[in-house]
Design a protein around this nucleic acid. Sequence first.
DNA 1: TATGAATGAGCCTTCATTCAT
DNA 2: TATGAATGAAGGCTCATTCAT
Lengths: 208, 208, 208, 208
Amino acid sequence: MVSERRRQEKKDRIIRAAARVFALKGYAGTLVADIAAEAGIGKGTLYQYFSSKEDLLFAVFYWYMDKIGASTMVGVSTLTQTASDKLTALGNAVLQACVEMAEMYGLVIEFWAASTSSKIEGRFKEVFRQGYGQYRELVAALITEGIERNEFRKDVDPHLLAATLVGTWDALGLQAWFDRDFAPIEANESFMAVFIAGLKSDRCHQSV
Amino acid sequence: MVSERRRQEKKDRIIRAAARVFALKGYAGTLVADIAAEAGIGKGTLYQYFSSKEDLLFAVFYWYMDKIGASTMVGVSTLTQTASDKLTALGNAVLQACVEMAEMYGLVIEFWAASTSSKIEGRFKEVFRQGYGQYRELVAALITEGIERNEFRKDVDPHLLAATLVGTWDALGLQAWFDRDFAPIEANESFMAVFIAGLKSDRCHQSV
Amino acid sequence: MVSERRRQEKKDRIIRAAARVFALKGYAGTLVADIAAEAGIGKGTLYQYFSSKEDLLFAVFYWYMDKIGASTMVGVSTLTQTASDKLTALGNAVLQACVEMAEMYGLVIEFWAASTSSKIEGRFKEVFRQGYGQYRELVAALITEGIERNEFRKDVDPHLLAATLVGTWDALGLQAWFDRDFAPIEANESFMAVFIAGLKSDRCHQSV
Amino acid sequence: MVSERRRQEKKDRIIRAAARVFALKGYAGTLVADIAAEAGIGKGTLYQYFSSKEDLLFAVFYWYMDKIGASTMVGVSTLTQTASDKLTALGNAVLQACVEMAEMYGLVIEFWAASTSSKIEGRFKEVFRQGYGQYRELVAALITEGIERNEFRKDVDPHLLAATLVGTWDALGLQAWFDRDFAPIEANESFMAVFIAGLKSDRCHQSV
DNA sequence: TATGAATGAGCCTTCATTCAT
DNA sequence: TATGAATGAAGGCTCATTCAT
């Protein structure tokens, strides 16, 4: 029996190969043979590590969510002072990850599409919900922090805004994937300048 | 030969049936037989109106874009005074359309996913680009209008912001589809309050 | 929709084609494509009538049991006078059916083999049991009739003997299939002469 | 190189393991991995002793024929006086072997089924023919002996009867395998009482 | 024109066999 | 020698499309 470590490494290699192919051709458009070829292994070998094409999609999904989560968390953990800066930096970090994995973004769409297919809906939706949930919590916490620090106006609902912000970043990532000329970070900075100004505006008005 | 009018009516009926089924089961998960059954016709008949399943997806796509466009335009055409109000109202109109066609939103994902499939990528991407382009133009025009009316600060890039705003609304619609408890219009109003405050904030600062 | 009658006719044609191929090549050795070719239809068509290869094996099984049952019953229903004659004639009728369907006998072995495969064991075994059960009942009834008519000795167990007789005929059929030079009917007449003499022997001894 | 003896022992162990698994799951239903596991060796090791799965089936077949033959011969060699007793005892010995190896009987069916598969038909059929041939010869010899000893009537064909008797015992064995509640030896004694009475009946009639 | 029975290309998956260790 | 990971040929089944009615 080979070491568990070797096995896991091979699984990872297959997952990354599958991620590339799924992202490029979509789930339905991908042949198991394509993935095997991309991973440099035989078709049968793949089935020693994953029980089905669908199972492999799940594995790619979890891997991707982890990866994105890690990028985001790294971005956050290295944040500095003000809530404003943290928010902007968080968005940029997420979008930076999107840009760096541009060719992977197609995956997200495949995941959404897969969550439509009734058979597997449940498994995907739940993890999606959790992933986005954590993410939104993080953003909401930063907004709340800003409010408590008297940086932001007090009459906003952190959770509603967080949901929207997360959506915005998602959409910028999507757009960057769709149109490689689009610069999502630039757009985000431009946007955040306005948005954060809005978050601070109440203090401004109060000061008037 | 039946009248061209009758033929078009039947095509529409098939398109709407296909839209429902695609939205529910996804493109890959949909059988041509499902669509025929939903449309109340025979499988063979369908091929007298559309040359292939893919062709039908295109038809649904065009139909959907038109429909969304119309909703949006209706929303815009009934707008009132200030650019701020117009922007908020436009977003709400779009989201209202999303909510009303909630069960159709799955289509958008299918369209995105389809645009990944290399075979048909081109056709979709172009129409997508055009649709979103028009939409962004509209939003950018409203922002420009606000700037010119001295309603908004002058140091923003209307096109960048427009791209972001459109993305935000898209994302809220997606989230509403994904989580039926999510209230996108409420979220949008909360968000737009902040965002528009930000757009006006420069004037505020200037006035200080 | 075609008439139910046409559909049933086609099903029968497929079943007979499948029976020929299964008998010739065995279940495992048979390709679905072989059966389709033998039936003169496309592979896909077969699946409009049977949900799987295994399902088709069941259909062949039921068809075969019916057919054998019918032959047997016909043989019995036209029987004449004495229980001795009836028994011999029944055996001959069964073996006659075996000879006529010689190329089908392989099926029986496939059925037995299939009943080993755990997945389907239950379905087969039960019908087998019933089929053989009826058959044995019939033979036992004839022996009982012979006893009551004072044709046969009274100290025999009709059911035990019936089980054995049925087995004997089965085995002669098997042997005839295995070795085309073997004449099962001749063997059966030779055997039944002795066996029936044995059944009558007690009376003979008594008469001494 | 290990001793030839060790090698043969290991081969035997594999054969017995294969026999158990083939009998339980059938040839087609058995994975080579199952056999290896049952034999407590690796899959690859198996191929150092047998060149293929089919080859292993042949080995099991020869092993089984030997084993059955041995049982039978043991039964015969310990037989006593009269031909009647010898015949009954032989049948009982065979059936006793069947009962003792009940879980192995499935093998016989697999062998029959395998002999249907055109690829290997020849090899099996020949050995089957030989095995059954020897067996029938033995029975025919006993019947002839009975005739010569004036124990049995003279107007019977020993070979035809022998073929039938062997078939009967085979069928009783099959039935015992199929229905574990069936008592083949009891059935055989009941049957042989009648059959041997029939074989003696001519003398009776002559004496009248 | 409308139908759905017929079709077969295409693809996922299995598993006997090989081979590097 | 022993192993089990790797392999890919083979085959069951699906489903978009065609076609006879």
